[in-house]
Amino acid sequence: MRDNVITLKPDDTMNDVRRILRDNKISGIPVVDDDRLVGIVTIDDFIICLLEDGGINEKIENRMTKNVVTVYSDDPIVQVVCKFDRDGYGRFPVIDRDTKKLVGIITKGNIIEGLLKKLEIDYHEEEIHRYRASHIFEDVISDNSTLILKYRIKGGDFKKAGEQTSKIRKNLLRLGFLPETIRRVAIAAFEAEMNIVIYTPEGELVAKIQPDKITVNAIDSGPGISDVKQAMRQGYSTAPDWVRELGFGAGMGLPNIKNYSDEMKIKSKVGNGTNLQFIVYKEGKSSK
């Protein structure tokens, strides 16, 4: 709706109506007496009065529509749209439900404008919906459906570190997983990807997607972890200073993977690389 409504008083004349309609390019003006809405005068009323002698100097009181159809400021828009349809009016004064005072005016134009804005906001979300493949697991008939996605990661490539997790994330979004589930998988996978980039020459992320859970394996051919228990300790890190200067390697990576996943396992042998696996359940840990 529009607030700061232009209003008239009952003893203003139709001449005033002409001036306001012309200056503001509007088609109807609420008539207010002491903050209370007492009527509405429109361009139609004005045309009719032009056809009668002396009409132009008459008081609005005698020309306005008195039983005005109004809406409350907290009415749902849907209800207002129905009212436009049913009553055939071009505008409704908007009244505050408690104080009964005029607070605005709403036209069909306002509603269309609002809808267009909403459409623009929803466009991005709709884009995601269009690509959603969430029906895949419902369409495929089997006792156990699993989708496996594999991504290669090059060690040392800091410019691209994070890119593969981003792809996993996008796919989970398309598959219709809940944002919170996706957030947990994405954070854990990102840390695993960073570990491969920081510490190993190469590796891969393998995401195994099932309707009820997502299992990610981060497999690398790196130096391996000599003491897994110690590596899991918050704040423990073997990262060189240059890694710390890139905002990683402060000993939070593995604890993050553990905290955001429901299950986590590390298999590692010095000189033989590491296989880190974590699982995130769709409904969270409790219902597994």
Partner: peptide
């Protein structure tokens, strides 16, 4: 920090 990982961090979080 101004690396691309800041953007990935923001996206994931």
């Amino acid at each position: 920090l101004t690396t691309p990982q800041v953007v990935y961090t923001a996206e994931n979080a």
